[in-house]
């Protein structure tokens, strides 16, 4: 955390709204990214990210400075997204749609584009296949490089529960990846002229 961020944090804790807005600007991308990975819809992700910052704003005086600010903020976002998914029981939606919008298509090669799109569709299905808590643990571990202890602290579950969730998520992803690959190969075989 930079000195200016420390200063904003201290000022925000003393009720300075401008300082808090600076923190929002600094951390909007990681928070939004987490919400997007968890929810898979741009509007829901924006609402969740806004709600995350509002909750952080309300709780900023209780923030423990010994803990990294990003970890604290992402914990709030992960909790909120898990709760939202539990409430609505929504599946991950059309990640491939936003992938098409946000991933710059720097290659004009249609074969390469098709392959990228297929990979993103695969990622969508892999994430969709998990329950929200497993997905949350996996995203925090591999997108944000949280340690198991940090995930445990963030999701308020034990370290052994984190290990078991990550194991289950990896196994599920590995199995599904192979299944998807097999079905894709079969489709190609069926589509090719005899």
């Amino acid at each position: 955390m930079s000195n200016s961020e420390m200063d904003w944090l201290e000022r925000a804790q003393n009720g300075d709204d401008e300082a808090f807005t600076n923190l929002v600007t600094t951390y909007q991308n990681p928070v939004y990214n987490l919400c997007y990975r968890m929810l898979g819809d741009s509007q829901e992700a924006e609402d969740a990210a806004q709600e995350t910052f509002w909750r952080a704003y309300q709780a900023i005086r209780r923030y423990d400075k010994n803990r990294p600010f990003a970890t604290w903020l992402l914990s709030i976002a992960a909790h909120y997204c898990i709760d939202q998914q539990r409430k609505k029981r929504l599946p991950i939606l059309e990640i491939d749609d936003w992938m098409e919008e946000i991933v710059p298509d720097d290659s004009p090669d249609p074969e390469k584009s098709a392959s990228k799109s297929q990979e993103h569709e695969m990622l969508r299905r892999l994430l969709k296949s998990m329950n929200p808590q497993d997905r949350g643990a996996l995203i925090l571990r591999y997108w944000y490089e949280f340690s198991e202890e940090e995930i445990s602290h963030s999701l308020q579950i034990s370290v052994s529960a984190v290990k078991s969730r990550l194991f289950r998520a990896r196994l599920r992803m590995a199995e599904l990846w192979q299944t998807e690959q097999s079905s894709f190969a079969e489709r190609i075989q069926n589509e090719s002229p005899a």
Partner: peptide, 20 residues
């Protein structure tokens, strides 16, 4: 399983950060 997780892991690493 090993190959499946390696591939999924690579896919996660190649996925970009979504900007707000």
């Amino acid at each position: 399983i090993h190959a499946g997780w390696q591939a999924a892991h690579n896919l996660i690493h190649s996925a970009p950060e979504i900007k707000a």
